[in-house]
């Protein structure tokens, strides 16, 4: 790791000022991502501002909204009784993430801001448009088993690895931030950017803008939600594909549904067309298959990841059948 300055403050506005004033400044929360990126030489901040003393670790349900502070730990959110009862997809996504040690430390803000696990991105010896604009993307024709089948571009096909972000995308969560220009909120689905021609622009946040928390609306949908993660080993592994689903039925007819997918795109992937194929229709093998086909209709599989096209449809069918009470 390169040398850097370290600062700690209990005031959010001061943390923001400190980072904003230094082009090479960065926040640190759990450190489970930033320390790895610094050791690998992917990031080299010259100032690290510790946000762990900020009073931002709350988990509260008020006026029909669940509010989770940015420094709340993955473990504490996953195990919170209100989250488990009213937002099970969030708890399940977190419990399927990383390991107990990481979850006990890693924060909600840091989780959303984690970088792709693309091996070319993580290896400064490789070209990578995301890390070094214009240097090229070896994944397009190289080892792309883990890469995106939807939402990628000719410049980058990396996937975003956060399970939590997928669950939050399904529940229409909102991200709250504090930046040099004050407070704002943005839909979670606008936090991560598609690569297009500028893959190095990874999120919608400005330099020095800090996530202070996320908010999730409470609803019958959120209460009837689940997360399914398919991985190469039973535990402690990133998703090959994952599905967050929330479903309400009137009899056998789908009254409402939200679907978000991980492992297949550079950001948590919502498919309005797949949802449309189910809404106000009976939940049957036929409608489920239609939803799956709608999801992958525009997929661009590559040499090593074409299997994801089938796999994600099967994962979708599995979770919908479970939620629909057929299993």
């Amino acid at each position: 790791m390169k040398l850097f300055d370290y600062a700690r403050t209990a005031r959010a506005s001061e943390a923001v000022e400190l980072v904003a004033a230094r082009p090479g400044g960065a926040f640190i929360a759990g450190g489970t991502e930033l320390t790895n990126l610094m050791k690998d030489g992917v990031l080299a901040p010259d100032l690290v501002v510790d946000v762990n003393s900020l009073p931002l670790d709350h988990i509260t349900l008020r006026n029909g909204r669940l509010s989770i502070g940015a420094t709340a730990r993955m473990r504490d959110v996953a195990e919170h009784p209100v989250v488990r009862e009213h937002f099970p997809v969030v708890s399940e996504a977190l419990l399927a993430s990383a390991s107990p040690q990481v979850r006990g430390r890693a924060s909600v803000g840091g989780n959303l801001m984690q970088r792709t696990r693309c091996w070319y991105y993580r290896d400064p010896g490789s070209p990578c448009n995301r890390r070094e604009p214009g240097s090229g993307c070896p994944a397009l024709k190289g080892q792309n088993r883990w890469h995106a089948i939807l939402g990628g571009s000719d410049h980058c096909i990396a996937v975003h690895p956060s399970d939590l972000a997928v669950a939050l995308a399904a529940l229409d969560a909102v991200v709250l931030t504090l930046g040099p220009d004050g407070r704002r909120s943005l839909p979670l689905r606008d936090l991560h950017l598609l690569p297009g021609g500028t893959p190095h622009r990874e999120t919608g946040l400005r330099h020095g803008e800090m996530i202070t928390g996320v908010e999730i609306p409470q609803s019958p949908l959120a209460r009837h939600s689940r997360y399914l993660k398919v991985r190469d080993r039973a535990s402690f592994e990133f998703a090959v594909v994952s599905v967050a689903a929330a479903l309400t039925l009137k009899g056998r007819v789908v009254s409402d549904v939200r679907l978000a997918f991980g492992g297949i795109a550079p950001k948590p992937w919502r498919s309005p067309k797949a949802e449309q194929a189910l809404r106000n229709r009976p939940l049957t093998e036929v409608t489920i298959a239609m939803a799956g086909r709608a999801l992958v209709k525009d997929a661009t599989p590559r040499e090593h990841n074409a299997f994801k096209v089938d796999l994600v449809q099967r994962a979708l069918a599995d979770i919908l059948e479970t939620l629909g009470g057929k299993r």
Binding site: Y6, R8, I28, G30, G31, T32, T35, N36, K39, V48, D50, N52, S99, P100, Q101, V102, G104, R105
Partner: peptide, 27 residues
């Protein structure tokens, strides 16, 4: 591994298990 992947560095911090390779001593 020095990257959080193996757990060989696990210690308890205020009773919670932590991978000590991924946290700064100053923190």
């Amino acid at each position: 591994c020095d990257r959080g992947e193996c757990g060989a560095c696990t210690v308890l911090v205020d009773g919670r298990r932590v991978k000590s390779c991924m946290t700064l001593a100053v923190m």
